[in-house]
Write a protein that binds this DNA or RNA. Structure first.
Length: 216
DNA sequence: CACCAGGCAAGTA
DNA sequence: TACTTGCATGGT
């Protein structure tokens, strides 16, 4: 799967974010949201010089909501970003490098205890900000595995994660690229109007006949 | 107009 | 545990 996608698309060089903080903020903002809209929100923060722990900590939540408005669910996400910043302040004394160097299992538990950070967001932060070798499962991963008859439609997050992690070397760079390539594939070939006939994964495994043209 | 996007949490039974 | 619903902008 990895080589088919890499040969087709080339390296994706994820995550699209210049700093660890930007990666973490982007991970929250992209929840059920098109990345284009996230970029607008992130650009608002950059333009206001607000993409720092101190600025985000100081900024009132209502003002933050206005900045991230283009990413949708803006009241919710402003609160979630605040929860994340508070966590960094309280647990790591506002020192991001300390957070990033923490024991992965401890950090994951901590992130999951934050209101608004679930498994995908936590694992995205672990993999893309902290370079921890953990596989990120998203809706595209789900859909693609299901279409190739390699997972049940209602398969749980942890099942799919284990499928990858138990069958691949524990390599953060590999997990990084593969997840990025899966998202790229999902976007371009595995939406509702699928293009399975020209998908780079066509040769990877069986495609359920049911899904050759459309989903559900 | 309908449909969807790199989720998550809270409520219900 | 297994479903359902609210959250919301912007692109196709």
């Amino acid at each position: 799967m990895f080589h088919l996608l890499l040969d087709h698309f080339g390296p994706q060089h994820w995550w699209p974010g210049e700093t660890e903080l930007e990666i973490m903020v982007g991970a929250v903002l992209t929840q059920n949201t098109n990345w284009k809209n996230v970029e607008k929100a992130v650009n608002n923060l950059k333009r206001g010089d607000l993409l720092s722990l101190h600025a985000l900590h100081t900024l009132p939540v209502a003002a933050l909501a206005e900045e991230v408005r283009p990413s949708g669910f803006f009241n919710l996400k402003a609160k979630r970003l605040k929860n994340l910043i508070d966590f960094i302040m309280v647990r790591y004394g506002g020192d991001l490098s300390r957070l990033l160097k923490d024991e992965p299992a401890t950090l994951r538990e901590g992130l999951l205890s934050i209101r608004g950070i679930g498994r995908e967001t936590a694992d995205s932060i672990l993999l893309y900000a902290a370079c921890v070798p953990i596989f990120v499962v998203d809706a595209y991963t789900h859909r693609i595995l299901h279409r190739h008859a390699m997972a049940e439609e209602q398969a749980a997050y942890d099942e799919l994660q284990a499928l990858f992690m138990e069958n691949l070397p524990e390599d953060a760079q590999l997990f990084n690229e593969l997840h990025a390539l899966i998202v790229r594939t999902g976007k371009e070939y595995c939406r509702r109007t699928a293009r399975c006939d020209i998908c780079p994964l066509k040769e990877w495994g069986p495609i359920a006949p049911y899904f050759q043209t459309t989903d559900r």
